[in-house]
Write a protein that binds this DNA or RNA. Structure first.
Length: 473
DNA sequence: CTATGGCACGGATT
DNA sequence: AATCCGTGCCATAG
């Protein structure tokens, strides 16, 4: 499969731009939350940057509402489609980077076409029938106090005090809300939201109690992927800790609002929680086989070089001229680097989308193991670039699942799912040694010891214990 | 004696 | 250079 891009932004192609490269690299390693901080800092200290609220067509500058296409020039907003075989760009020209130095190279904010009703109303509608009339106002209060992540700002105690009601009354309502559709909405924290979701999965969870404990006690460790430490905290082996951590990250969503509410994001919302929102979204086109890759633009508005500042430079007082010029350069550099970051990520994701198309649409079993090195080769960039781009980022798949980008590089996921299905269909409890043989017939050569590991990762009990379970059913 | 889990080593990956 | 992953060896449980 020859995947080649129309243009190329690799190292060495722009020798004059070492500063660009350095900054692009560092930006590439950031996910959207970190990016927000970075941009906020830059906005604060650099007067040449400005953030315009609202949305603008990057091409014709027309102010937009919620259209995916700009109605004036039909520019497709921040999206590029990926066809099955050759890659198709819906907007073939991403406005050459660097071609226009200080003006116009704006980035665009990303908004899904969220014509859905507001989250609060949606949830309220689900539960209103179960609410006593005096509970309605409490529910409304909770729902209007949730932030865009679906997490409650403030505490239930406050609300109880506000209405002079016992805390337990509020808790009843809160519980109803949490169990409504975006599971876990209105929880007081990401941890609690996770617990609600965990509970709803019930016995589908491989290690329920351990997972619960991990969420309660090991949030910080969990989000940093420090499996070893997590293992120590819970008194279990590293592998098991890892399995649990991965299960939580892959199947639970710390931001219940996100899966429902699209991606609105504004300045100044700092998320205390450490688990992530997606940095990239892959969706499928309506009536179309194409997958659309979108990179999140985490700010609400349009970041650009302030044209007023630019004009001011011309008539700048002597002593300030130099300083302002530097500000201006840095501002446009930052914007260009951001654009390049986005572009790199989009290209990366496009290739992944092609290679892992089946995985994205069908599920774990169709994962195709691929290494970062191979991908780097395809992209024509250095390995470390891919590493940085992948690090700490997550993708929202068409199914709504949010997975870490690194999962696309899992070397054994497809074998593990194969293993799972083998065991699900078994009539007699198969020992690990037998499983090795069966897997080999299917083309997966792995050692007996490894089967045991995979089993453990998936939370499947050893053969002799499964025997008892099989007997029941 | 067989099936598994723990530990640790070495090669691959990042 | 640091980390991850598959595997082999050994101890232990059944």
């Amino acid at each position: 499969m020859a995947i080649r891009q129309g243009f190329y932004q690799g190292p060495g192609q722009r020798p004059q731009a070492t500063a660009h490269l350095a900054q692009t690299m560092s930006l590439l390693g950031l996910n959207s939350q970190e990016l927000i901080q970075k941009i906020e800092a830059a906005l604060a200290e650099n007067p040449a940057l400005e953030l315009i609220e609202g949305r603008y067509c990057p091409k014709c500058k027309r102010k937009l509402r919620n259209e995916a296409h700009c109605p004036v020039c039909s520019f497709q907003q921040a999206k590029e489609a990926v066809n099955e075989e050759p890659i198709v760009f819906l907007n073939s020209a991403e406005e050459g980077f660097g071609s226009r130095a200080t003006s116009g190279s704006e980035l665009r904010e990303e908004i899904p076409t969220a014509d859905k009703e507001p989250l609060a109303a949606y949830v309220l509608r689900q539960i209103s029938s179960e609410l006593a009339s005096d509970e309605q106002e409490i529910a409304a209060h909770i729902l209007t106090s949730i932030n865009e992540d679906g997490i409650l700002d403030g505490s239930l105690e406050e609300i109880a005090r506000f209405y002079h009601r016992p805390l337990s009354d509020v808790e009843v309502v809160s519980e109803l809300i949490q169990n409504a559709d975006p599971l876990g909405v209105g929880s007081e924290s990401s941890e609690k939201a996770l617990l609600v979701q965990l509970k709803s999965l019930g016995d589908k969870v491989p290690h329920y109690d351990l997972s619960k404990q991990a969420i309660l006690e090991g949030m910080e460790v969990l989000s940093k992927h420090q499996y070893g430490e997590l293992g120590q905290m819970l008194n279990i082996s590293r592998d098991q800790a890892k399995a649990i951590a991965e299960f939580i990250i892959e199947n639970l969503n710390p931001f219940p609002g996100r899966s429902y509410w699209g991606t609105k994001r504004s300045l100044g919302t700092d998320t205390p929680s450490t688990l992530q929102k997606p940095d990239i979204i892959v969706r499928r086109q309506k009536n179309d086989k194409r997958l659309v890759v979108e990179v999140m633009w985490p700010l609400f508005g349009l970041l650009r070089v302030n044209p007023l500042f630019q004009d001011a430079l011309k008539s700048a007082p002597e002593e300030k001229a130099e300083e302002w010029k530097i500000d201006l350069e840095q501002a446009s550099l930052l914007i260009k680097c951001l654009a390049q970051r986005n572009h790199t990520i989009v290209r990366l994701m496009q290739i992944i989308s092609v290679v892992q198309r089946n995985f994205i649409l069908e599920g774990d079993a169709h994962m195709k193991p691929i290494t970062r090195a191979k991908l780097a080769e395809e992209l024509g960039v250095h390995e470390s670039t891919v590493s940085r781009a992948v690090a700490g980022k997550s993708v929202q798949l068409p199914s709504g699942k949010i997975v870490m980008l690194s999962q696309f590089f899992d070397r054994s996921l497809h074998i593990r799912t194969e293993l799972k299905s083998l065991i699900e269909e078994e009539s007699k409890a198969l020992s690990d040694t037998k499983l090795v043989k069966l897997l080999e017939e299917k083309g997966h050569k792995i050692a007996r010891r490894t089967v045991a590991k995979y089993r453990n990762m998936e939370g499947i009990l050893p053969a002799h214990m499964r025997k008892a379970q099989l007997a029941k059913t």
